[in-house]
Design a protein around this nucleic acid. Structure first.
Lengths: 340, 340
DNA sequence: CTGTTAGCGCATTCAC
DNA sequence: GTGAATGCGCTAACAG
């Protein structure tokens, strides 16, 4: 049978209180009995029952990552970086993939409350109204909250984001420096804070360079490969931009494909810059020039903030903004004098 | 404060047993009191404390997915398909990314035991010897085990794999049907059952076609993009295969890049076929012809098997073998008469 | 059909 | 320094 604290206590000739104390390193115990208990625990291969501990109010060491889609490389890489650091800090991670479904979101909040996770990291906005009330209960139960890669927390929580304004700015700047002025943007549905900020940065750079922005060159998509190909295709048929700023690597790949079908050469006839720097950027042909999000750092930062909050080391919420980094590869090139 | 089963019982004017019964749908209760209790629970927004329940031996509804690397699209997509079905079946999923580190593996096994997860799905082989003893304890504690995409279970467990022999066979067959005979294979370190079987299938097809196999055309890699590019490059410099069978999509992309650098056109001068059919296959330029693993089905199948085992519906272990599917895209083409 | 009671394994006052 | 006793919230005999 499973060995309990009683078994250990008996074998060590002490009370369960003493055993509990050496486990949690609380109270005062003589070095001698501590050693004895430790040895017995090792011999019996004793591991405390987490649920019994949780029942008395102890932490569960579980955190949850709420993400729209783990199969998306960006979230996959994010999850990995969080998991790595979480493991080091002694936390296990539950994955909640909402699949952009508000119902699933709400449902998950309910189980997270039940499971008494120590903290939750949102890699998605919280869109659903029903979710909000569930979330408020969660917050009132001492469960710590944090948000990553989004900046629309409706409740007080720690936040880690990248400087999207600067990201958009640098992307535009790069293209401008190569001589491009006829630049299109392939965006998503425009709802996320990230997108809005990227556009803002883009505008800023264009204004500084005194290049007017043609609104017909800003094309929305559903953030998917299919949708990206379609919209990029229409764009290329309609206008003739010499450069495209895609708001993520998937859309950049889509643009490459759309160009390819039309016999437009990247980067010779058309420069394309992506965003995120996921594995796709390396894989693409040609390899993608892209604005890198510091995924690893972002992941580490959130979980560290969250851990601090869980341990009660800090009561004030914090916001960390990390800088983007331009990765120049081979999908962008100087504007050719007689291009298109 | 958190509302407990006592609060509900009091408010409903019944005993906690009755409440427990309606929660778990056990025993016989009059429809009337059941309704009453249900209403009260809803009004009070009561959710049972999972830990208290677990303490009495009830299931935790937690399962764990042990994977080498969730940031790898293949495992990401696998995780997603498992999570989706798990959610439907009422299970939450913990992610354990071992990062190919035996120590982390062992450590995870220990916490999984503590947490009393209902079941564990291995998407990795179990390599570590220390892990084995930990695993045996786990198995002895009623925790159900399953393995996916690998077939080297050291303990009895349910298994879901793809027919890799056939996958290798179909890849070779496809290339042969296009007229290729000078075919190279880019493999990994050769350790997994999947690889061995793919080679086996490849050999089989070649033999049937009476095409001799040149062993120098089988090049090992570390399964990474970098390593793949390097080895593919050496291969192309050294021999001059007209086709390459890469053992996963990452390696296929690597081969495309290596060819590109050398001015070798895909698929005109060189046909390349991948394996897995991850998002990379769609993204690649040209889009990759590849042997699709039925990731979604595989994921669904394991979790369903596991759930059955957890619910005790079946005592005998089962093995499901799913068929691969050839996805013809644009990275392969008929051998040109005067090619290279 | 419903209620009483005794644990599940552990943390935590209080005493000693 | 150490231990006995109590309760965390729930399930499962056992009685009615």
């Amino acid at each position: 049978m499973k060995t309990t604290i009683y078994d250990v206590a008996k074998a060590a000739g002490v009370s369960i209180t003493t055993v509990s104390r050496v486990i949690n390193n609380t109270g005062r115990i003589s070095e001698k009995t501590r050693q004895k208990v430790m040895n017995v625990m090792k011999e019996m291969a004793y591991t405390p029952n987490v649920h019994a501990a949780a029942l008395t109010g102890k932490r569960t060491n579980m955190i949850a990552l709420v993400t729209p889609d783990i199969s998306n490389p960006f979230y996959g890489e994010l999850a990995k970086s969080i998991e790595e650091r979480a493991d080091e800090l002694g936390f296990q991670m539950m994955i909640c993939s909402t699949d952009y479904d508000p119902k699933k979101e709400t449902k998950y909040f309910s189980v997270l409350k039940q499971k008494k996770v120590d903290g939750i990291i949102f890699a998605t906005g919280i869109e659903n109204h029903d979710s909000m009330s569930a979330l408020e209960e969660i917050a009132s139960e001492q469960i710590q909250l944090a948000m990553i890669s989004q900046d629309k927390a409706l409740l007080p929580m720690d936040i880690v984001v990248m400087d999207d304004v600067r990201g958009g700015y640098e992307a535009a700047k790069h293209l401008l420096s190569l001589g491009h002025t006829n630049i299109a943007c392939i965006v998503g549905d425009g709802s996320t804070t990230g997108e809005k900020n990227r556009i803002k940065g883009f505008r800023q750079a264009m204004e500084e360079a005194d290049v007017p922005i043609d609104k017909s060159l800003i094309v929305p998509t559903r953030f998917s490969l299919e949708s990206g190909k379609e919209e990029a295709g229409k764009l290329l048929d309609r206008n003739a931009p010499t450069a495209i700023f895609a708001f993520n690597d998937v859309l950049a790949c889509a643009a490459i494909q759309a160009a390819r079908i039309r016999g437009i050469k990247v980067p010779d006839d058309l420069s394309i810059i992506g965003f995120d720097n996921t594995i796709l950027a390396e894989m693409a042909a040609p390899p993608l020039t892209t604005v890198a999000q510091p995924i690893k750092d972002m992941g580490r930062s959130v979980i560290e903030l969250l851990a601090e909050a869980i341990e009660g080391k800090r009561k004030t919420k914090q916001k960390i903004v990390l800088p983007p980094e331009l990765m120049v590869r081979h999908s962008t090139s100087p504007l050719k004098p007689r291009a298109r």
